[in-house]
Design a protein around this nucleic acid. Structure first.
Length: 149
DNA sequence: GCCAACGTTGGC
DNA sequence: GCCAACGTTGGC
């Protein structure tokens, strides 16, 4: 089992929105970055655990945990000409973009970006560098540093 | 709202 | 295939 961190803008889709969907979970659509896509398509597996991180908001922070309940599927919005996520270069035979489905697990007391940056135990997490990656791996060790239970 | 960092696009 | 221009992300 692997660990991940997914970013979301809470004004668009927050952990509370995820919680409200209950056991049906939420399809994580709209990832349009190749590195993030590769993680989603190739490495994110059923039952992996995911930190939900709120970005572009007052206090950027890890706010809770979700789990993967369905592995990668083509993101249907890439075929929807009405959607902001439409991609004219993607075909059904060879889709470019994928998403997974997440189910809410629990809230955490927010682990703020400033606390993560200040934590000397955290050295690998891509969030620490000024990266803009929206899906990133978290090592098992660093997961447990951030979330001791 | 500003702007630095970085990914993507497109001309050559 | 290089790289400048451009667009987007996301912290502050």
């Amino acid at each position: 089992m692997a660990y991940w961190l997914f970013k979301t803008e809470p004004d668009t889709f927050s952990i509370d929105d995820l919680k409200a969907l209950g056991s049906q979970g939420a399809f994580w659509e709209g990832v349009r970055n190749y590195q993030a896509r590769n993680f989603l398509r190739d490495q994110v597996k059923l039952a992996d655990l995911v930190f939900i991180y709120h970005s572009s908001c007052k206090v950027p922070a890890i706010v809770g945990i979700a789990k993967v309940i369905q592995q990668a599927q083509p993101d249907p919005f890439q075929f929807d000409i009405q959607s902001d996520y439409f991609d004219a270069k993607s075909t059904k035979e060879n889709p470019r973009w994928y998403g997974v489905t997440l189910e809410y697990v629990k809230h955490l007391r927010p682990i703020t970006l400033s606390a993560i940056k200040a934590n000397l135990e955290i050295t690998e997490l891509a969030l620490k560098k000024a990266g803009r990656l929206s899906i990133m791996p978290v090592s098992e060790r660093e997961w447990h540093v951030l979330c001791p239970n």
